[in-house]
Simulated scan of single mutants.
Amino acid sequence: MSSVSPLPDLPKSGISLPDTPLIREALDHLKKYTNPTTVNHCIRSAYFAILLSRKIARNRSKPLDVELVVFSTIMHDLGWATDKMLLSKDKRFEVDGANMARSYLEEVKLSVGWDRHRTQLMWDAIALHATPSFALHKEPEVMLAHIGIMADFWGLNYPGYPITIDENKEIVDAFPRLGFKEQFLDIMCGLCALKQGTTYDNFVGEYSVEYGLDGKGAGKEEFAKKRLAFSSPRGFYPAVGAYEQDED
């Protein structure tokens, strides 16, 4: 193992991430399948998660599984893989990422101590990372992965979670954003173009309703009509009525 960690300590913020073989190999795996902007976003999310783990109230009856939190945040956007052949046609990107991370754990020989429960927590942390109504009410590791990821979007403006100017600057200076805002829009719209049906019932579809399938407005009206037709109550509620008529 190299003496220089790819995830250095941040002394001003007092953040130290675990420098384990699994974490190092996971980071290499992420770099292999995603672009540098995504890599830096995932790493920043890990730092924010550990930073906020010290600041928020949580059940401390059990020690926090820091390696699980960091592994989950580092791997959480494998569903944005640059090679689209790696992605499913029928699953949300978060589920793709969770499945890919689980497959990785099953293949490597570094996941000592990752029993079924620990692996399930990791899967939940990735699959639910963009759904606060679930993630915030799960185990501490799942919750912290979520807020670490969201903190990288909100920064100093993250409601309810105190991040100082100096803390935010130290993390972003160490792993720059590299045009994350623009690339995020391209990724969201790209997912809508690649597998529309997986985006109708969640936030991803909102981007193509607003910006089209190419981020510049192309196909937005047709996409919006399809999404509206799918969404409840226009789709779900009439189906309930039809089912009741069948019973008469």
Results as ranks from 00 to 15, higher is better:
residue 133 S to E: 12
residue 134 F to C: 04
residue 134 F to H: 08
residue 135 A to N: 01
residue 137 H to D: 07
residue 138 K to Y: 00
residue 138 K to N: 00
residue 139 E to R: 01
residue 139 E to K: 02
residue 140 P to T: 01
residue 142 V to K: 01
residue 142 V to W: 00
residue 143 M to D: 00
residue 143 M to L: 14
residue 144 L to R: 07
residue 145 A to K: 07
residue 145 A to C: 14
residue 145 A to R: 04
residue 147 I to W: 05
residue 147 I to E: 05
residue 147 I to Q: 04
residue 148 G to C: 02
residue 149 I to R: 01
residue 149 I to W: 02
residue 150 M to T: 04
residue 150 M to W: 09
residue 150 M to R: 12
residue 151 A to R: 12
residue 151 A to Q: 06
residue 152 D to T: 05
residue 153 F to W: 11
residue 153 F to K: 08
residue 154 W to A: 12
residue 154 W to D: 10
residue 154 W to S: 10
residue 154 W to R: 07
residue 154 W to L: 13
residue 155 G to I: 09
residue 155 G to A: 10
residue 156 L to G: 00
residue 157 N to T: 06
residue 158 Y to I: 08
residue 158 Y to A: 05
residue 159 P to E: 06
residue 160 G to E: 00
residue 160 G to V: 06
residue 160 G to P: 03
residue 161 Y to I: 02
residue 162 P to I: 03
residue 165 I to T: 08
residue 165 I to E: 14
residue 166 D to Y: 03
residue 166 D to M: 09
residue 166 D to P: 00
residue 167 E to Y: 05
residue 169 K to F: 05
residue 170 E to F: 00
residue 170 E to Y: 00
residue 170 E to S: 01
residue 171 I to L: 03
residue 172 V to M: 07
residue 172 V to K: 07
residue 173 D to P: 00
residue 174 A to M: 15
residue 176 P to L: 07
residue 179 G to R: 09
residue 179 G to E: 08
residue 179 G to A: 06
residue 180 F to L: 09
residue 180 F to K: 08
residue 181 K to P: 02
residue 182 E to I: 11
residue 182 E to T: 14
residue 184 F to P: 02
residue 186 D to C: 01
residue 187 I to R: 08
residue 188 M to Q: 13
residue 188 M to Y: 03
residue 192 C to K: 11
residue 193 A to Y: 05
residue 194 L to F: 15
residue 194 L to H: 15
residue 194 L to S: 13
residue 194 L to E: 14
residue 196 Q to P: 02
residue 196 Q to R: 14
residue 197 G to V: 10
residue 198 T to K: 01
residue 199 T to P: 11
residue 200 Y to Q: 06
residue 200 Y to L: 11
residue 202 N to S: 04
residue 203 F to Y: 11
residue 203 F to D: 09
residue 205 G to N: 10
residue 206 E to T: 10
residue 207 Y to F: 13
residue 207 Y to S: 08
residue 209 V to T: 14
residue 210 E to T: 15
residue 210 E to Y: 07
residue 210 E to S: 15
residue 210 E to C: 14
residue 211 Y to P: 14
residue 211 Y to F: 15
residue 212 G to I: 11
residue 212 G to A: 10
residue 213 L to F: 03
residue 213 L to A: 03
residue 215 G to Q: 06
residue 215 G to F: 03
residue 215 G to P: 11
residue 215 G to W: 01
residue 215 G to V: 06
residue 216 K to A: 13
residue 217 G to T: 03
residue 219 G to P: 12
residue 219 G to N: 11
residue 220 K to L: 13
residue 221 E to K: 15
residue 222 E to W: 02
residue 222 E to V: 04
residue 222 E to H: 02
residue 222 E to A: 10
residue 223 F to T: 12
residue 223 F to D: 08
residue 223 F to L: 10
residue 226 K to S: 03
residue 227 R to L: 10
residue 227 R to W: 04
residue 228 L to P: 00
residue 229 A to R: 08
residue 230 F to M: 01
residue 231 S to E: 14
residue 231 S to F: 01
residue 232 S to M: 08
